[in-house]
């Protein structure tokens, strides 16, 4: 059984390497750091796989490791001691333009990750909650706040 989950993890990592790379890139914002994050994440996944109790959570667990590795990496790079999650954006205004690059820059790391996982990687809210280690309601609140910032209003069934 143990052997099997290791193989599963390995094939997820290799088959979806582009997804994990993009997610890492969304944090690192440059190729060489994103590559470092990818390697480090793969290493951690295989090394700590025995700690994963519920095997059905494997794919969200991998996202979680990529996210945490990215955050660690940024923290080291910026030599910061505070989590970027703690950083408050000074203005909560809405973004008024239409440039996607600027739009995404308007969100903080956490909001951006939620938007990426929800709309670009099609994860369910429960899965996002699991990947970010927070409860579903928090994810929902943050998601609405993020969408509001970039002036996206959706019918409730989308979320």
């Amino acid at each position: 059984m143990k052997q099997k989950i290791e193989e599963q993890a390995e094939s997820l990592l290799l088959n979806n390497y582009e997804k994990y790379y993009r997610l890492a890139y969304s944090y690192a914002k440059n190729e060489s750091d994103a590559l470092d994050i990818v390697q480090e994440s793969a290493y951690k996944v295989l090394k700590d796989i025995s700690k994963l109790k519920d095997q059905s959570l494997l794919s969200t667990w991998i996202y979680r490791i990529v996210i945490n590795t990215s955050i660690d990496f940024l923290r080291k790079r910026n030599n910061e001691t505070v989590s970027i999650y703690d950083l408050e954006i000074p203005h909560e205004d809405q973004y008024q333009g239409d440039d996607p690059k600027e739009m995404i820059a308007f969100l903080n790391e956490e909001e951006r990750t939620i938007v990426i996982l929800k709309f670009f990687e099609d994860l369910k809210l429960e899965e996002i909650a699991d990947a970010l280690n927070m409860n579903v309601n928090t994810v929902k609140t943050r998601l609405y706040r993020a969408l509001k910032k970039i002036r996206v209003t959706l019918e409730t069934e989308h979320v």
Binding site: E10, L13, L14, Y17, E18, Y20, Y21, R22, Y25, S26, E31, A34, L35, D36, V38, Q39, E40, S41, A42, Y43, K44, V45, L46, D98, P100, K101, M103, I104, V115, I116, F119, F120, I150
Partner: peptide, 24 residues
Amino acid sequence: NDLKEEYVNIPVPAAAYDRMKQGI
């Protein structure tokens, strides 16, 4: 959709696959 397009168009270098393998 604009945002998504921007995101999926992030170029993924071939090295990403190799680095994944190296980590494993």
